[in-house]
Amino acid sequence: MAALSRADVEHVAHLARLGLSEDELSRLETELNHILEQYAVLARLDTDVIPPTAQTIELENILRDDEPGPSLPVTDVLANAADVADDFIVVPAILAAPDATGR
């Protein structure tokens, strides 16, 4: 499998919204490539006809009735937030639409 370049590492860090120092990026480039080498063992297995397993528990149709219940008091909703005003949680002004491009 292809190795990760420094640019790839930076791209993934942006996708994951992790602010990393130059040192961290360099170390991760080495470490991630080392770990990815271990993954190469998987390529030896022919899994074309094998279905994936996402969950091991054999449950289906776990649904609840549409019955409303209590919510938290507003003070509890806000209690852990770093910045609060007038029962709202405050964040920096959001001008752009969501972006998941990693650029």
């Binding site: 019955e67 409303p68 219940g69 507003v74 909703v77 029962d87 709202f88 949680i89």
Partner: peptide, 17 residues
């Protein structure tokens, strides 16, 4: 199970963990 009729509700009043 928070109520879904959020329109017009006071801010952050229909919120659970």
């Amino acid at each position: 199970r928070c109520r879904a009729d959020y329109d017009g509700a006071p801010p952050n009043s229909l919120v659970c963990p």
